[in-house]
Computed example of a mutant assay.
Amino acid sequence: MSTKISTGVKLSAAAILLVSLAACGGGGGKKITGRELLDAPMEVSTVYKVSCVSCHGTDLQGRIGPNTNLQKIGERLSKEEIAKQIENGSEGMQPFKDTLTAEEIDGLATWLAGKK
């Protein structure tokens, strides 16, 4: 009987751990499914979640200062300027030209340019 209790306790502990880890997801305890990402093509959404959300947030609101807010980035920068910034980085932003493909950068830039 102690084996069954032990197994049950282990399963409960594993379930709690999985729920806790799922809540983290790099989004500060929030699920990484912001309403801004709902309009992104799946490929773009995936790239954003993996490469951008930690600094720019789940709703493009920016997580580390006002310069990281992308909610209206299309009003400030053209698609080409956004792509260049993703590729080369800027003050405080790492370059992604060696991390993302040209297609991924173009997809992000196209989507973000529409944020007005």
Rank of each mutant, 00 (worst) to 15 (best):
K10I: 13
S54V: 13
E91T: 10
A109M: 01
A22D: 10
E87H: 09
V19K: 05
K31G: 12
D98S: 15
R35I: 13
Q61N: 08
V50Q: 13
Q71A: 07
G26T: 05
S45D: 11
A23F: 08
G74S: 04
R76L: 09
R76S: 15
I32D: 07
P95W: 03
V47E: 02
S20H: 08
T99K: 13
T3V: 13
P95S: 04
A109K: 02
E81N: 09
Q85V: 10
S90G: 15
K97I: 06
K97F: 07
R35Q: 09
D98I: 09
E36Y: 13
I5P: 01
Q61P: 03
Y48N: 00
T33H: 08
T110S: 11
I16G: 11
E91C: 09
T68N: 06
K4W: 12
R76P: 01
K84F: 12
G27W: 00
I5H: 08
K4A: 14
K97T: 06
A113S: 15
K72D: 10
A83I: 01
T46W: 06
I32H: 05
I73D: 01
K30G: 12
V19W: 11
G65A: 05
K72E: 12
I105H: 03
T33A: 11
L11S: 10
C24S: 10
V9K: 11
K4H: 08
Y48Q: 01
V53G: 02
E104D: 14
G65N: 03
K31H: 10
Y48M: 02
G92D: 04
L77E: 08
E91R: 12
K10Q: 14
I105F: 03
K84G: 13
G57A: 05
V19A: 15
D106N: 15
L70A: 02
T99N: 09
L112C: 01
P41W: 05
P95N: 04
E43H: 10
E36N: 13
G27Y: 04
P66N: 12
G29M: 06
L60N: 03
D39T: 15
K115M: 09
G29Y: 05
G26Y: 05
H56A: 03
K84S: 15
K4V: 11
D106K: 08
S51Y: 09
L21E: 07
E81H: 07
Q94T: 10
I86L: 07
G27M: 03
A40F: 15
G25T: 09
Q71G: 06
G62F: 03
E43V: 13
L100Q: 01
L21Y: 11
T68K: 00
K97G: 00
S54M: 14
M42T: 15
L112Y: 02
K10M: 11
L77R: 14
K49R: 14
L108E: 02
L100G: 02
T7E: 11
E91H: 12
R35C: 09
I105S: 01
D106P: 01
M93K: 04
W111M: 01
L11G: 06
K72H: 10
A14D: 07
A13S: 13
G34R: 00
I82N: 00
D98W: 07
K30R: 12
E87T: 10
I73A: 01
A102I: 05
A15Q: 04
V50D: 09
G114D: 06
K30M: 14
D98C: 05
P95G: 06
L21R: 06
T33N: 14
E80R: 06
Q71W: 06
